[in-house]
Computed example of a mutant assay.
Amino acid sequence: MRRVVATLAVVLVLASVPLPVAAHANHVTAGTQVSPDGTLVVDSVYLTSDGYLTVHRDDDGEPGERIGVTEVPARSFQPNVHVTVDETAWAEWEPQSVHLVLRSDDGDGTFEPDEDPAIESFGSPVAASITVAAGERAVVAADQHYLQQTRRGTLDVRHLATPTEGYLVVTDHETGERVGTEAIEAGSHEHVTVALDGSDRGETRLDATLYREDETGGIGEPIRAGNASVGATFTVERLGGGRQAAATATATPNLVRTPSEPTETATETAGPTTATTVGSQPGFGLLTTVGALVLVAGRWRA
Score class of each variant (00 low, 15 high):
V140S: 03
E165H: 12
T110M: 14
Q148T: 08
R201Q: 14
S76T: 13
S76C: 15
Q78W: 15
D197Q: 11
I219F: 07
A302F: 14
N26F: 06
V21F: 14
L255S: 08
G240N: 05
D106P: 04
A127P: 13
I130K: 06
T235C: 04
S188D: 12
E213Y: 02
P117I: 09
T150R: 08
E215Y: 09
W93N: 00
S104C: 02
A142V: 14
E94W: 06
T84C: 05
D43K: 02
V42N: 01
A127M: 10
V98Y: 08
T175N: 11
D200E: 09
A133I: 07
A183K: 11
T276F: 07
V294G: 01
R151T: 12
G31L: 00
V194W: 13
G109S: 07
D50M: 06
R257Y: 14
D143P: 08
G240I: 09
V194D: 06
D105H: 04
T258L: 12
F284Q: 11
A232M: 11
T274I: 12
D197H: 09
T164P: 05
G217I: 03
L168G: 04
P95A: 00
Y46E: 06
G291M: 00
T252I: 07
T274E: 12
T110V: 15
L53T: 00
A183F: 10
G166K: 00
R103C: 03
S35L: 04
A266G: 15
R243K: 11
G187P: 12
T39V: 03
